[in-house]
Design a protein around this nucleic acid. Structure first.
Lengths: 323, 323
DNA sequence: TTGAAAGCGCTACCAA
DNA sequence: TTGGTAGCGCTTTCAA
């Protein structure tokens, strides 16, 4: 493995000049540049990334923090990784499995200067604690946060959820249930607020036992059918789901139980993923890839002390056969 | 931001001693250690990751190369990231979007010592070219490779596919179609070989127009129904799918077209993912998470010049309602 | 047990 | 346009 020193010696120039060639400095004569480039090629030279990072004080690496990666995050992840890459940044994944200690390691890596910035997909630590890491570098979040220091690129799901509630009401549903994710996350609270407002506006009854939380996956969705639709008493005639996975599980199990969709039960997903399209699930479109781009450019802006232009985004409802 | 030098000065010891404390060297007296640790805590000190990497010549980072991340890779990705993390290694994602030039950047990062090793999920460059990067660090692959230098942790799908073909034949199917992924990948070839062998063994006709390639996603699976099952003439009575996504698309579209499953058409997926479970798709179980662990330990072994123990793995068929 | 000093490989400032 | 040199922050031998 050759290094700058060797190149400099062989070419008969100083390390400084070789470094200039490496960094495309205009202050190098064409002949000198050619000579040096030739030697580099000959020795199969590439600069050592760690040395560059140490010297420059920047790694061109961005950390991505999540409990674990699932389908719902894929559009965000792919879009972020690609956007970053186009701008010369690599993405390091830190998954915590929901362990707060483990999660904190990602933030420590920011402090240790292994990454220049951090993007949170989901996090479990106290937000204020995480916010204290902002002094080590820019942090942005997908998950909505309670602090001003860590901006979130996610949209206020209040607006999106309202579309869903409005839609099933228009379809004639009156007994509307919510199947939600993390119990007291901002998204859940926003959705509940939208739900309650719409229900009140239309003078429909709000039944708290029809708002379930902690539902995330296909299997969770299947379980919901048993909890919400198979017991005695009155059943909901519409369910708004935490995401399309849940909606898929719900739909599948409902059909298995001979519940007619949408006649007896309307189902609305969230995010409008490929899965919703495939299974014909009505879903609320959430422009996730664009949010990831916003996230990256927000970080890049802070890294370069420049203002970054953010795309304006909005929700929309895609009606399919489940409503 | 404090550094080693400041800690050393404040503590009244040399940098060497401070470094020893950092690296848990036994050659430090307890009192010295305590003093130094106290100062570190007081100054909120953490070592600079880049400096450590440069000095040690190792980054504790492993690159992961893929065209893009999709659901099928998630179990591998999550398992790999977690296993790596447990062993002190972080994972950097490099996606190429199928662009060979872009993909090569991941391998250049190995050469530049930004990562200690590389794991290939999928790659598009010439294998021999990629193999030439082995001199810069260990490389292992999930996708099967044609070179001995880059070992693959994937299993020979010949064995798995045979289970599938055998199964549908046992169910009484005779007109068996294959829906495959990358046209001339080793997996596709292995599957075709298994198919042909089983068909010959049972004296069943092999119809090459019933072997489709380049099918990956749910939507692709939906398309297959139109191509394979809706035209005039004879139709297959069983389809073995590239993966569970394809099987899901196929199943869904078949039902939409009023094709009875499994009476008129048996469907077998591959990988036995959550989706297959949910939709009740018979699938061939592929222990992917374990393969990811094998991949990591293979790399770790080479990094530490030690032999690594590999888990022995095998396929199995999970029968559900689509056969 | 501790310290001095020579790396690790590159950047960037100041002179020339 | 080029070179000298002092960093960047930590590790690791060699001596003491």
């Amino acid at each position: 493995m050759s290094n700058l020193d060797q190149i400099a010696k062989l070419a008969g120039f100083s390390k400084a000049t070789v470094s200039r060639v490496l960094n495309n400095s205009p202050h190098v004569s064409p002949e000198t540049r050619d000579t040096i480039l030739a030697i580099m090629k000959q020795l199969d030279y590439v600069p050592n990334g760690n040395a560059v990072s140490l010297s420059k004080g920047r790694t061109l690496q961005i950390g991505m923090c999540a409990e674990g990666i699932n389908e719902a995050m894929l559009p965000f992840l792919n879009s972020f990784v690609e956007t970053a890459s186009q701008n010369g940044y690599q993405t390091i994944i830190y998954t915590s499995g929901g362990d707060a200690k483990q999660e904190l390691k990602a933030f420590e890596e920011l402090r240790r200067k292994r990454v220049d910035a951090l993007v949170i997909i989901t996090c479990v630590n106290d937000h204020a604690l995480l916010g204290s890491y902002c002094k080590y570098g820019p942090i942005v979040s997908w998950q909505r946060m309670e602090l001003p220091e860590i901006r979130s690129v996610a949209m206020n799901q209040y607006d999106g959820y309202k579309l869903g509630v409005e839609h099933v009401i228009e379809q004639g549903c009156t007994r509307i249930a919510n199947v939600l994710g993390r119990p007291s996350s901002m998204n859940t609270l926003s959705r509940l607020a939208a739900y309650e407002e719409m229900m009140k506006k239309h003078h429909l009854p709000i039944r708290h036992e029809w708002s379930l939380t902690g539902i995330y996956s296909i299997r969770d969705g299947e379980r919901v059918v048993r909890e919400l639709l198979l017991g005695g008493g009155e059943h909901p005639d519409a369910v708004l789901c935490a995401n399309d996975l849940v909606a898929a599980g719900l739909l599948n199990e409902a059909r298995r139980q001979r519940i007619r969709v949408p006649e007896d039960l309307a189902i609305v997903g969230f995010d409008n993923t490929e899965l919703a399209h495939t299974l014909g699930i009505t879903s609320i479109d959430n422009p996730i890839a664009a949010q990831a781009q916003n996230a990256f450019y927000l970080l890049l802006g802070k890294l370069n002390q420049a203002e970054s232009v953010q795309q304006k985004l909005q929700f929309s409802l895609v009606k399919r056969v489940t409503t």
